[in-house]
Structure formats: structure tokens, C-alpha cells
Design a protein around this nucleic acid. Structure first.
Lengths: 264, 264
DNA sequence: CGCAGATTTGACATTCTTCAAGCCCAGTGG
DNA sequence: CCACTGGGCTTGAAGAATGTCAAATCTGCG
């Protein structure tokens, strides 16, 4: 019923992102927190369409290559940054996935997002010069490091880059508004359906299967994102299973009735 | 028990914002939607400390005066902009207050914020070139109109302005994260307490009384913001009244036990 | 003064959480 | 190879929080 390969998601042949399936992760004994010089270049990156404006000239691309030249590997469960860490850079996920978590003094936690390959992280830190949340890897992952001060320099010189950064930040604002709507007005059932459809469309836009994928987060993390308890998440999955909307085997998900799920 | 003046909030004498109490609103017969040239100038605006970075030179201030030269009056209940309107400008509230509302196709509404004098609105529109929410005046209000394209030009030339805009956008991201935490993890009682304390500190930072103020929004709008029904909002107000944390007479609010409210 | 909308309050229904028990499954060590 | 173990997941029963519906005030404004 499910693919028996190591791949999490069905990758269409010829996908522009196939390369990411096999991107080399540093061996376990390498110091995982040290940025390392790599051959990573925006000009040849397959994620370019997501991270960069479409209209850059060759010269502009070279400017970017000059500032975004390091990547960092983060192992499952480790933090890329934590709340209150000094803000220096924003990050783009190259391989793997993360969750961002806001942690209140009293211990309450709220997952504010799940980031997959192509997503940006860290823009929250610009406001106070310190990060306002933790970014934790859900699996062994790799990010591009984009020093924000240098990015600001480029944005003052390249108009399309400037506007792209503004769109990224605004997009984050819009994304969070949608999440507030979800948390404020939807039932548990609708929240989970919306979550699955959102993941589905994001996988699809990155060339993966829209209907079959592997969740890297636990039921508890999903609940923490959707504002409900893990038991409720589990019950809703069971409900979708009974109603033949989704076929779940633990973290392996297959959406069998996309329209039905949207109608919930 | 409450001030009998027309003022909504107690204004400390010598407050830098006293002028806003009597800022002239256009007469009712004036076309309220037409931007009008005014003497509004950033260089002399009493809201400057909120809207602008602290370190601008005189020359830089003059550049701003040149682009932000119009204001607009919006009467109670009218929209400054609506979802899907083409995005041109962002706005700063000069007088009055607004709510921003995300409206889902199925009619669900979620209030994503209340903006008072000194707050910015409209940054959601940068992402798609269209606004993603409605901004509706809660009382007769006035905003500065800041054409975003021109602002981007200034930001490419004035580094401190660029960083300030980035901080504004990032601040909106952080603010919304906090709201997600509220919606995702707090009880109705905690949400209302947090809401009142947040309003209080914002009034205080603008020179108004932190303990006594007038709510411009209905119980329903508060509920729509906090993810609960208006009846629940009302019950929580009654509860705070019984517990002598807050003294409410309809929309007139006096916080009598700030620490108690924070401990909820 | 009298209406329309806003607010409060009570009674009851629903949803979600809490607590508890058991299952599943992958990794591990005998 | 297989039993063991721990984390993650599922499910049931009971209870708490919040929503729904309804009725009675209250309030601002024409």
C-alpha cells in the first residue's frame, strides 16, 4: 500500500528537487553546529525559484552567492536557534524539516509553524535583535545561512531583492493570520483537515506527492500547533479514517478524498 | 467614579499626545474617502517616536515629509481597505482606532488585531499585492497614508529607515505569534486578562492611563479576536468584577488589581 | 420617550480535555 | 531469533470548559 523505499514522499521522476532526496548530511562525528563552507550557490540552487525573485541578473546572482555561502547541518531534535538567542541571520531550509515553537515563561508551548525544504525561518528575530522562538529540527536537516545585515545591504542595491524580502515577511504575516483564523474559529476536525490540506499543497508545490506523505512531527506536536491535545488529534485521524477521507498508518498519510477533506 | 469628560482615557497633563485628543476630524459633509492634503508632516508629528527610527537626519526627515503628505479620515464602521483591494499604501493611525478582520469564504471572521493611535496597518498587502483583511474604523478616525513604493525607495537610500521598516514587519510577525499562543494554549479567562493587560500597556506607552480606558469595540469583536463567544466574554468580565480585578461599566474599564489580573 | 443594538445571565447541549489502560512498532541486547 | 522496552499512538469513560439558545436589562441616540 505504501512505498517501501526510504523516501518520505512520492517524488515524481524528473522533479526539480530530486537532488534533495540524497543531499549529503554531515557524518555523525562532524561538529554539527559549525557552519561549513560548501559549494552551495544560489545561482545553481534548485530551490532558487522559492528563495529568490525571478528576475535577477547574473551579476545580482553573483552578489548573492558571495554572501550566502555557508550551510549548517542540524540533527533531529537539535535547535537551529532558541528564543532569546542574538539574531544574526535568517535561514532557508535546504533539506529536512523544522518546527518553530514559542515558549512562555510559565512553560506553555505553542508550535507556530512547520518548515519544510524551501521555507524561510528566523524573520521573527529582526524585531528585537533576538529570536522570539525556538527552531528545532524534526529530522536531520540542512539550512542555508543568510546573514541579515548583508541581505539588507543587497536589498538597498537590488530593488527586486528588496521587494522579495518584503514579500517574504508580509507572507509570514498573512500565514499567521490564517493560523489565527484556524485557532479562533475552527473545530478540531476542521483544524486537522485544514492542516493536512495545507501540508499537501506545500508538498505539491515543491514537486512531491500531494496525496501521500510522511509526517515528521508527532501527534503531540500537531496538537500543539493546532491548539488541541494529542488525544484529540488522534481521534480526528481515526474519524477521517472511518469516513474514508484519509488512510493513515501512524505517520504515513494518504489523502484518499481531497474534496471530502476540504468540505469538512 | 469615572471621568465625566468626553475623553476616553485619562490623559496625563503634558502628555506628548494631548494634541490627538482634539485633532480635527473632517466635517461630516466632506468626502471622507478622498485623501486630502494636510499640514501633516513627519518632521513635526507627535507620533514620530512610534512611526520612525530615532536617528534620522533633518535631510532624511524632509524626504519623508515629501512622500507622506496625505491623511485620510474614516468614519466609524467604514473600511479603510478591504480584503482583495489592491495594495498601494500602508497606514499609520493618527486618531481613533481600527480592527483588522480576516474573512473566510464561508463567512467565518477572525479579528486579527485592534490598532490605536501610533499603530501601523496594511503590511499584509505586500505579499500578494492585495490586502488579505479588512481594516474597519471603530470610531471616527484618521490615518497617515504611506505609499509603499515610495517607502521602498526611501528604504534603499536610508539604512535606518530600511531597518525600521524591517522591524515593523518583524514586530507584526512576533505580535501574531503571541496571539497564536493565546488562542492555542489559554483558557477564556486568561485570554481576556491578557487582552486587557496588553491594551493597558499600549495605552500607557502612548501616554494614556494604564488603568482606566474606554473600549471602542463590542463584546462580540473582543470575542472574535480572542476566539470565543460574546457571552463568554461577558461572563469573564463579570467574573473579574466579582473578584475585584476590574471595574467595568459597559465599555468603560478600570483595572483595579493589575497584579491579580496578571496572575490569572 | 422609545427603539435597536449591546450586554448580562440562566439553563442546557456540545466539544474537548483529562485520566487511564492497552496497543503498536522499532531498536536493542541476550 | 526473540523477548524486552520505551516512546508514540489509540481508545474509552467521565468531567470541565465553552457554546447555544432564550429572556431580561441596559444604553445611546434620534
Amino acid at each position: 500500500m505504501y512505498s517501501s523505499t526510504a523516501c518520505d514522499v512520492a517524488v515524481p521522476s524528473g522533479s526539480p528537487h530530486t537532488a534533495y532526496q540524497t543531499f549529503p548530511i554531515a557524518p555523525v562525528d562532524a561538529p554539527v553546529d559549525t557552519p561549513k563552507r560548501t559549494v552551495a550557490r544560489c545561482s545553481t540552487c534548485s530551490m532558487r525559484a522559492i528563495c529568490l525573485p525571478p528576475s535577477l541578473t547574473t551579476a545580482e546572482l553573483e552578489r548573492l552567492d558571495a554572501i550566502i555561502c555557508t550551510t549548517r547541518n542540524v540533527r533531529r531534535g537539535e535547535a537551529l536557534y532558541r528564543g532569546n538567542d542574538a539574531f544574526q541571520s535568517i535561514y532557508a531550509v535546504r533539506v529536512g524539516s523544522f518546527k518553530t515553537v514559542v515558549i512562555h515563561r510559565d512553560g506553555r508551548e505553542q508550535v507556530t509553524g512547520f518548515q519544510i525544504a524551501g521555507d524561510a525561518m528566523g524573520l521573527d528575530g529582526v524585531y528585537a535583535g533576538r529570536h522570539s522562538c525556538d527552531a528545532v529540527a524534526l529530522e536531520d536537516s540542512q539550512v542555508c545561512i543568510i546573514p541579515f545585515g548583508l541581505l539588507e545591504v543587497v536589498c538597498r542595491e537590488v530593488k527586486s531583492m528588496q521587494h522579495h524580502v518584503h514579500q517574504m515577511m508580509s507572507g509570514e504575516i498573512v500565514r499567521e493570520s490564517g493560523l489565527m483564523m484556524l485557532l479562533g474559529t475552527m473545530s478540531a476536525e476542521q483544524r486537522l483537515a485544514t492542516f493536512l490540506l495545507n501540508l499537501s499543497s506545500r508538498f505539491k508545490s515543491r514537486g512531491y506527492s500531494a496525496s501521500e506523505f510522511h509526517l515528521r512531527m508527532t501527534r503531540e506536536e500537531i496538537g500543539c500547533y493546532l491548539g488541541m491535545k494529542l488525544e484529540t488529534v488522534s481521534r480526528m485521524f481515526s474519524k477521517f479514517q472511518r469516513e474514508k477521507l484519509v488512510d493513515t498508518h501512524g505517520k504515513q498519510i494518504r489523502i484518499t478524498n481531497m474534496e471530502g477533506l476540504a468540505r469538512v
